[in-house]
Nucleic acid binder design. Sequence first.
DNA 1: CTTCATTTAGTAATAATTACGATTTATCTT
DNA 2: AAGATAAATCGTAATTATTACTAAATGAAG
Lengths: 143, 143
Amino acid sequence: MNVQEAMDKLKQNGYKYTDKRKDMLQLFSDESRYLAAKDVLEHMQDTYEGMSFDTIYRNLSLFTELHILEATELEGEKRFRFSCSTDHHHHHVICLDCGKTKHIHHCPMNDTPGAPGFQVTGHKFEIYGYCEQCSMKKDSAVR
Amino acid sequence: MNVQEAMDKLKQNGYKYTDKRKDMLQLFSDESRYLAAKDVLEHMQDTYEGMSFDTIYRNLSLFTELHILEATELEGEKRFRFSCSTDHHHHHVICLDCGKTKHIHHCPMNDTPGAPGFQVTGHKFEIYGYCEQCSMKKDSAVR
DNA sequence: CTTCATTTAGTAATAATTACGATTTATCTT
DNA sequence: AAGATAAATCGTAATTATTACTAAATGAAG
């Protein structure tokens, strides 16, 4: 997924091409990590002074619907990242500080026996912690 | 974990024994499933008319700290359930409608190679869907 | 039964998210 | 290129979950 593909997808589904949408997508493309709505807002307001919550949230959920972004819920906030690649199911190791991720290629669903009668609609496997940079930052902050 | 053990744990840690706490714990003991704060509030207000949010939330987080309850975040809400058994690490299959759970005894962390430099602090593996009763309810509601 | 720290009710504050009417803008049509 | 139209946006208000505060009440220990 890249910005152009994402914009094309919007077009295909009858949505409009706006600079704000492009900039939002560019942000997610540049930062390949999970961002909270407020991170997006802050970044966008550098360029578009009066940009409203509404626009941010509406577009974030639109992008998620179209599978341009993937979302997870972390520490009471929804967070979003550019959809990695649509062709390969995977999970994430997530840095709780900066939101950076590593891939986990192995999916535990393969090893988990189905529960009879239970209709499965989704699953979540995530590993949390601190990436090398952020854990060094934390260490030095303590001293 | 049962109500008595939980109350003992409170005592041991210098917290007081109140009827409200006992009733809250009894609720979790009776319903062995995930409950949202508002579910707990509603149930408690049947007995204690003017019971406040504060009391519910304060106790929920106290119980969680003492590992009497375990918490997860689901659809934008924190949910709590009686801690299953402290001696055995496990994960849950969770019904999105009623909160009932089944255990997954296998932990995917065992199969997942550590990421070098990444300091792991936690992980989450959950399977979502609808239990037999709730999926039947949904089917018949559609007709 | 008195003291004292804890707990609680009532309510206000915070934070994330969603909703809405008026205005603006992108796209389509001509 | 200009006008029509549906979608997007702004500014702001409403909603929802959660946390915080103060005065009053209460359980526990001596």
